[in-house]
Amino acid sequence: MSNATRISELTAAVLNAEDPDDILDLLADSTFEILSPDSLLVLLPLNDSTWVCELVRGQYQAELLGASVSHSSETTDSAPLPFVLDHDSQEALATLTWSDLTHALADEDLPAPAGSTSALVAFPIDAGAARRGLLIAVRFADEDSDATAAFTDAENVSAASLAALFSFALNGSTGRSAIEDDLNDERNRIARDLHDLAIQELFGVGMQLETVMSQASRFPEYSDEGPVATSLKDSVAGIERSIAEIRGIVQSLRNETVEVTLSQRLRHECGLAIAGLGFVPSLHLQAPVAELDAIEGELKEDVVAVVKECLANVARHAHASAVSVSITLFKEGVDTVIQVNVSDNGRGIDPSITRRSGLANMGARARRHLGWVDFYSLDPGTMVSWRATIIAE
C-alpha cells in the first residue's frame, strides 16, 4: 500500500474519530511506520509557555516521554527548540538538530548512537487557541556505511501531511474549537430554559392575576378604577412586557454564533478540501495567529475565497499528491501585506487551457486590496501566489 493511500485512510479515520486519544495514538503509530525514523516525537503545548513530549515512538522513548520544555517570550534566551516553539520561526525550525532537541528536553544530553550521523525533520502542529506543537522525526545512520540518514523529498511531503492530520485531530475537521461549541451549546441551553421555564412561569402568574381580577369584581368594595384594580392591571402589563423581552433574548441567543476567525476558516477549508483531493493539504501559518485573526471584513473573506479556489483547482486539474497552503504577513515600507502561496506537485498548468476564470477572480480580489496574483511553474507542479495590502482603519 502506498503512503498516499495510507494517509488517505488515516484522513478518513481522523474525520470519523470519536476518541481523540485513540486517534492521536493511531497517528503516532502510523507516522512511525510511514516515515521509518529511529525516533518520533510529538510535542504539544501544556500552557502558553510549556510544551510536553506527549507521544514518543522508537529509540529513547523512556528518556523523552513526558519530558517538557518551557520558554517565555519575554526572555532573551534563544535556545533553538524553545525559540522555535515560542516564536514560530520557520528558519529556526529548519536548522533544528538532535542535539538541540535532547539538550532542551532531557536532563542531560542524549547523544546519537556512537559512530552515527543524524537527520531531523520537524513540522508544526496547530494545537488550537493560537498555540502550536511539533511533529519531529529523527533518523540515525552509521558514518562508515553507504546508508544516509537524510529524509527524502517524498518523506518530507508525507511528514507535512501527517503533521496536518495531527492538527485536524486536535482541532476538529471543521476548524471550530471545542470552546466555541461549548459556548453555542450553552447559549442554546439558556434559550431553551428561558422559553420552556421562565416564560411558562410568567404565563402562569399572569393567568392567576387575571383570575384574581375576575373574582374580585364580585365584591362591592372592589372598583375597576380603584388602587387594587390598578395595581393588578399594572402587574399583568408588566408580565406581558417581561414575556416579550424574554422572547427577544431567546431569539438573540438562538441567532448569535461565535465569530469564526481567519485561521479557523482556513483550517475549515483545508478540511473540506480533503474529500476532493483525496489527501490532507498542509497549512502553514507563517505569522502570529493573533495578527492573522485580527483581519476582518472583506479582506478576510477574500483570503478564504482564494484558498478555497486554489484547492478546488488542484482537486480538479492538477492530479497532485501534495498541496501546501502558506499564509505570511510582512512589512513592505509602511504597509502590512498578507501573502497566500498555494503550491502543489501536480502536472502543472496545461498550456492549451487559455480561459482561467478562477485566476481572473483571484486577480480582482487582489486588486481591490492594492495587491496582485501570479502563478509559477514548479518542478513538478504549480504555485499560485496572491497578495493584498492590509489597509489600516
Rank of each mutant, 00 (worst) to 15 (best):
L283G: 10
Y60D: 05
D146V: 04
S377R: 13
E393T: 03
S223A: 11
C53S: 14
F151Q: 11
A229K: 05
S39D: 02
D181E: 15
F151P: 04
G276M: 02
N156V: 06
A237N: 15
T11W: 04
T389I: 00
R347N: 04
H195I: 00
H87K: 15
Q215L: 15
A62D: 13
G115Q: 07
N361A: 13
C53F: 08
D86Q: 15
N47I: 01
I125W: 13
L101G: 07
A13C: 00
V84A: 07
R139Q: 06
H369N: 03
E74T: 10
A237S: 15
N341C: 04
A114Q: 10
E210S: 14
V138C: 13
R218K: 14
E291N: 09
G206K: 15
E210T: 11
P20A: 08
C310I: 00
V303G: 06
L64A: 08
R218P: 00
G175R: 13
V14S: 04
T389K: 13
G172H: 09
L272E: 12
D193G: 09
P82F: 06
I295Q: 08
L35M: 07
E296S: 14
A320W: 03
V337R: 10
D21M: 08
L283P: 05
V342S: 06
A366M: 01
E91M: 08
L183D: 08
E256D: 14
I353E: 05
D25I: 01
A366V: 00
E74I: 06
E332M: 07
K331Y: 01
L292R: 10
T76D: 11
L209R: 09
A154H: 11
L26G: 00
F168G: 09
G358Y: 10
V84I: 12
D193T: 14
A130P: 00
L162W: 10
D379L: 03
G348Y: 02
Y376L: 06
S116H: 14
E245V: 12
P37E: 03
L253S: 12
E63T: 03
L202C: 09
A127N: 09
G276T: 02
S173R: 11
L44N: 04
N188D: 15
I136Q: 11
A137N: 11
I179W: 15
L285P: 08
N188A: 15
L262T: 05
L165T: 05
S161G: 11
V340D: 01
V260G: 09
S231A: 14
A163Q: 07
D344C: 08
